[in-house]
Lab assay of single mutants.
Amino acid sequence: MEQATVKWFNAEKGFGFIERENGDDVFVHFSAIQGDGFKSLDEGQAVTFDVEEGQRGPQAANVQKA
């Protein structure tokens, strides 16, 4: 698992990007966020996640709020 920071997340559209420590951004979809209830992330929030290869490149999976 990697630890990184949420760059931005649009709760209405259900997706955003996580900024990795190496500077690369990773796409995150609300369905990858672990937990119950409304799944959203806040800008600047610390998260841990795995990286999977998606249809359009790397994307976050198993996202957990740190």
Score class of each variant (00 low, 15 high):
M1T: 13
M1S: 14
M1Y: 12
M1R: 15
M1F: 12
M1V: 12
E2V: 12
E2I: 14
Q3W: 14
Q3P: 07
Q3M: 13
Q3T: 14
Q3S: 13
Q3L: 14
Q3H: 14
Q3C: 15
A4G: 15
A4P: 03
A4W: 04
A4Q: 04
T5G: 03
T5A: 06
T5H: 13
V6R: 00
V6L: 01
V6T: 04
V6S: 00
V6W: 00
V6Y: 00
V6D: 04
V6M: 00
K7H: 09
K7I: 05
K7A: 03
K7Y: 00
K7D: 05
K7R: 10
W8I: 03
W8Q: 02
W8V: 00
W8S: 02
F9E: 05
F9I: 03
F9P: 06
F9H: 03
F9V: 04
F9Y: 10
F9R: 00
F9M: 03
N10V: 03
N10R: 03
N10L: 04
N10K: 03
N10E: 06
A11C: 15
A11T: 13
A11G: 08
A11M: 10
E12I: 12
E12P: 01
K13A: 09
K13Q: 08
K13H: 09
K13M: 12
K13R: 11
G14N: 03
G14D: 01
G14W: 02
G14M: 01
G14F: 02
F15H: 04
F15G: 01
F15M: 05
F15A: 01
F15Q: 01
F15P: 01
F15K: 00
F15S: 00
F15I: 07
F15W: 15
G16D: 01
G16W: 01
G16E: 01
G16Q: 03
G16A: 05
G16I: 03
G16V: 05
G16R: 00
F17P: 03
F17M: 08
F17L: 04
F17A: 01
F17N: 01
F17K: 04
I18Y: 00
I18D: 01
I18F: 04
I18G: 00
I18A: 02
E19L: 14
E19S: 14
E19A: 14
E19I: 15
E19Y: 13
E19W: 12
E19M: 15
E19V: 15
R20P: 04
R20C: 08
R20M: 09
R20N: 06
R20D: 06
R20H: 05
R20S: 05
R20G: 06
R20F: 06
R20I: 08
E21C: 14
E21N: 11
E21D: 11
E21I: 12
E21S: 13
E21Q: 12
E21G: 10
E21Y: 11
N22Y: 11
N22I: 10
N22M: 09
N22C: 14
N22E: 09
N22F: 11
N22S: 11
N22L: 09
G23S: 07
G23F: 06
G23K: 09
G23D: 07
G23W: 04
D24K: 14
D24S: 14
D24N: 12
D24M: 11
D25K: 10
D25M: 15
D25V: 13
D25Q: 14
D25W: 13
D25A: 09
D25S: 10
D25T: 12
V26E: 00
V26Q: 00
V26C: 06
V26N: 00
V26Y: 04
F27G: 01
F27K: 02
F27S: 01
F27D: 03
F27M: 01
V28E: 03
V28N: 03
V28P: 05
V28D: 05
V28K: 01
V28A: 01
V28Q: 02
V28C: 07
V28G: 01
H29R: 02
H29W: 06
H29Q: 03
H29Y: 04
H29F: 08
H29S: 03
H29K: 02
F30E: 05
F30W: 15
F30P: 05
F30A: 08
F30R: 09
F30H: 09
F30I: 09
F30Y: 13
S31Y: 04
S31D: 06
S31T: 13
S31A: 06
S31F: 05
S31C: 09
S31V: 05
S31P: 05
S31M: 07
S31I: 05
A32I: 03
A32F: 03
A32M: 05
A32P: 05
A32R: 03
A32K: 07
A32T: 06
A32Y: 05
I33F: 05
I33N: 01
I33E: 04
I33A: 03
I33M: 04
I33L: 07
I33R: 00
Q34M: 13
Q34K: 11
Q34N: 11
Q34C: 13
Q34T: 11
Q34P: 04
Q34L: 14
Q34H: 10
Q34A: 12
Q34R: 09
G35I: 09
G35F: 08
G35N: 06
G35V: 09
G35L: 07
G35R: 00
G35Q: 10
D36G: 11
D36H: 12
D36Y: 10
D36F: 11
D36A: 11
G37L: 06
G37A: 07
G37W: 06
G37F: 06
G37Q: 06
G37T: 06
G37M: 06
G37H: 07
G37V: 06
G37N: 06
F38N: 08
F38I: 08
F38S: 06
F38Y: 11
F38M: 07
F38H: 08
F38R: 08
F38E: 07
F38C: 12
K39P: 07
K39F: 06
K39H: 06
K39W: 07
K39T: 06
K39Q: 09
K39M: 07
K39C: 10
S40N: 07
S40I: 11
S40T: 14
S40H: 12
S40R: 10
S40Y: 14
S40M: 11
L41A: 02
L41T: 02
L41S: 01
L41R: 00
L41M: 04
L41N: 01
L41V: 04
D42L: 14
D42P: 06
D42R: 15
D42G: 10
E43K: 15
E43A: 15
E43T: 14
E43G: 13
E43F: 12
E43I: 14
E43C: 15
G44M: 03
G44F: 05
G44D: 04
G44W: 04
Q45D: 14
Q45C: 09
Q45K: 03
Q45G: 07
Q45T: 09
Q45P: 01
Q45E: 14
A46I: 15
A46F: 13
A46R: 14
A46M: 13
A46N: 10
A46Q: 12
A46Y: 13
V47G: 00
V47H: 01
V47P: 03
V47R: 01
V47A: 03
V47D: 02
V47W: 00
V47T: 02
T48A: 07
T48G: 04
T48C: 12
T48S: 10
T48I: 13
T48W: 15
T48L: 12
F49A: 03
F49Y: 08
F49T: 02
F49D: 02
F49G: 02
D50H: 14
D50Y: 15
D50R: 13
D50V: 15
V51S: 05
V51K: 05
V51E: 06
V51G: 01
V51D: 02
V51N: 03
V51W: 08
V51F: 09
E52A: 10
E52D: 07
E52K: 10
E52L: 13
E52V: 15
E52H: 11
E52Q: 11
E52W: 10
E53L: 14
E53M: 15
E53S: 10
G54K: 07
G54V: 04
G54R: 08
G54P: 02
G54E: 03
G54N: 06
G54W: 05
Q55W: 13
Q55V: 13
Q55F: 14
Q55Y: 14
Q55P: 15
Q55S: 13
R56T: 07
R56M: 10
R56K: 12
R56Y: 14
R56C: 13
R56P: 07
R56D: 07
R56E: 06
G57T: 03
G57H: 05
G57Y: 04
G57E: 03
P58Y: 08
P58H: 07
P58W: 09
Q59G: 04
Q59K: 09
Q59P: 03
Q59F: 10
Q59H: 09
A60R: 00
A60F: 02
A60S: 04
A60Q: 01
A61Q: 10
A61V: 14
A61P: 01
A61D: 03
A61N: 08
N62I: 04
N62C: 08
N62Y: 04
N62D: 02
N62P: 01
N62M: 07
N62A: 05
V63C: 03
V63R: 00
V63Q: 01
V63Y: 00
V63H: 02
V63P: 02
V63N: 01
Q64P: 03
Q64V: 12
Q64G: 07
Q64H: 12
K65I: 13
K65L: 13
K65R: 11
K65P: 11
K65D: 08
K65Y: 09
K65A: 11
K65G: 08
A66L: 15
A66P: 07
A66W: 09
A66V: 15
A66T: 13
